[in-house]
Design a protein around this nucleic acid. Structure first.
Lengths: 349, 349
DNA sequence: CGACGGAATGACAGCGGTGCCATTTCCACC
DNA sequence: GGTGGAAATGGCACCGCTGTCATTCCGTCG
């Protein structure tokens, strides 16, 4: 109980176990060439002292920080949170710690900030989520610093870094087909934020499904939103107030779908009888709203876990060449969730 | 362009600027006693080399990690995310980095894990959110390690650590009063997870308001939920299927309120005409559902920012006694948000 | 004019580990 | 019995920075 007040160091352990610090280090790091006897003595000493290796010292000496960073752009949403949960799961399992950094990708000093994050903290690896995934400055900094990174993004697969995604185009295609199959012909669409890759892919899927189904894409039925509830309200209004209004609306994410639903309720429509609505993402909101929303589930958590696995897998074999060729790309399965916000269009019972 | 390949160190800067590394260190740390001339030379050298101090080395030498941890229990929800956004804001502003760690407070090795997090990473300070705030093991470890922490929790204020909260009892009281003022007399209540402090306080506020308003608390109208949508579904059913059913329902959080709303819709009720519903927290869901939910807004982000401020404020004056006496406790203002899920009870127009 | 105090700078020893390179011990094998 | 090599251990420099304690260089003051 007496003993020195400060935290025990490896030296204390070595002394107590009657070994050299180097040998203690070996035990801590599970290296080979330690006799069972010695190992036991050292482990006992560690336990007795409650010794915990100092990460800082470890990192300094070994050039490995055991830190993984999550760089993301828009603070918000359940998406980011799910990503973190997934990352955390894997980090914990593999002895890494997670450092999260929001980065304003529009700000003029992204460069400075990204560089500070990466270089000062000496992150071992980084996971990027949209829209940071598309920022060339950030990517360059990571490349320059030689920090491996994995991107979680629906974007075009790249030669230089691994990525994890679902097939967003296909998902949107299938979801649109579902509406067509129900008999809808006038299907409104609310796009996401301009320039986001997801926006483009989801819209493409919608267009292709219509075309393949023999329905022309009508620009009057396409609105530009920004992935937020508020942004979708005016879109929903314009769509619903048209004289010849759509019988179904495909919103590019669940939040915007919620806005459509709210506007429909406001007008006294009964859903889905008067109007079918579908969203995208399957955020918690989707099943909490009324009627529960037909949408497509993106396995966000699994995607994050996969990203972490790829990253950690690489880190563990560092010293090799940069990336295995070809660079790994994972496409995870999505799920179309048919809930109660869709039905046959009015008059086509 | 040529130059050494490795990242520049303080030594390179010193050499280039013709100064000692100690002086460079002074400039980096904005210490006093550096001549303007010297300062300029060094800053120029730093810029030229793109020098970034190595946090690991810094931490090791200075015994300060510039790391703040967020320890939380239940992965989920917009709450955790908002907290992180708030913390991140402050961390960024003050040069700290945020390390997030989920900790399973029920697991048998909480102790080991909490200790590992705190001691290995040498966190400078920690912010706790419920329900980790109430875990004596974790608290003890923090105390033992001498790591200052701030709790974001409605719980009883403690002598030993600062806290940030809103007056949950009062908020619930006011919200209940609102329902009473509208003319409701049979007001159902769905409690949160047992043993959570918030659960108790919200329920207490409800009971007190009823009593003060001359209405007896009817146990038939009180259900036990767990703060989740799913847990509230059966509660809502029991409440709504009673022969003499309540005209209003107070759910202990927004998610559970959403469940009530969904069940009401299922029964073809029109809201709020047939049933008033209120929630608690003002999660994004509250304004995205239909009808938009009357609830009480907890300024979660500000609470996190306040917690961070308290913590950082303390860290900056380290070397003093532990905590200033008395330990700071902040109570932030909540806001009752009257939206469209409440109205006079049927028949009392 | 010498003493003295503050400003400006530097030397050097750690902080607590790991990497690299001995060194010692112990066998197996010829 | 000599020898080569793997197993087991230790010594020590060093990772990149800060804390502590000189040291130098003034300007001021009695």
């Amino acid at each position: 109980m007496a003993g020195p007040d400060r935290k025990p160091t490896i030296i204390d352990v070595a002394r107590l176990a009657g070994a050299s610090i180097k040998t203690v280090s070996r035990v801590i790091n599970k290296e080979r060439y330690v006799s069972p006897d010695m190992q036991e003595r050292i482990e006992k000493a560690v336990a007795e002292l409650g010794y915990q290796p100092n990460m800082m010292a470890r990192s300094l000496a070994s050039e490995r920080s055991n830190l993984i960073g999550h760089l993301y752009g828009d603070a918000g949403g359940p998406y980011t949170l799910e990503i973190q949960v997934g990352l955390l799961n894997r980090c914990r399992a593999h002895g890494y710690h997670l450092m999260i950094e929001e980065i304003d990708y529009r700000s003029p000093n992204v460069e400075q900030r990204a560089s500070a994050i990466v270089n000062q903290m000496r992150l071992d690896g980084v996971v990027l989520t949209a829209p940071v995934t598309d920022n060339p400055i950030v990517l360059r900094i990571l490349e320059d610093a030689g920090v491996p990174y994995v991107r979680v993004t629906p974007q075009q697969e790249s030669e230089t870094s691994p990525s994890v995604r679902i097939d967003e185009r296909q998902a949107a295609y299938t979801l649109t087909q579902h509406l067509l199959a129900l008999g809808h012909r006038r299907i409104g669409f609310i796009k996401g934020k301009a320039n986001h890759t997801a926006t483009i892919l989801r819209y493409t899927g919608y267009c292709e499904a219509l075309t393949d189904g023999g329905v022309a894409v009508d620009p009057v039925l396409v609105e530009q939103g920004e992935f937020t509830y508020a942004s979708a309200v005016p879109c929903a209004r314009r769509l619903l107030d048209q004289p010849h209004r759509p019988t179904a609306i495909f919103a590019s994410n669940d939040e915007m779908a919620a806005a459509v639903v709210a506007e429909a309720h406001n007008r006294g429509f009964s859903l889905p009888a008067n109007l079918s609505v579908v969203g995208f993402d399957d955020t918690p909101l989707a099943e909490m709203m009324w009627p529960p929303l037909t949408t497509v589930r993106q396995p966000v958590r699994e995607m994050a876990e996969t990203a972490a696995d790829i990253l950690i897998g690489l880190l563990s074999q560092r010293g090799k060449v940069d990336w295995p060729k070809p660079v790994p790309h994972q496409v995870l399965a999505h799920t179309i969730l048919l809930r109660q916000s869709t039905s046959r269009p009015p008059g086509k019972a």
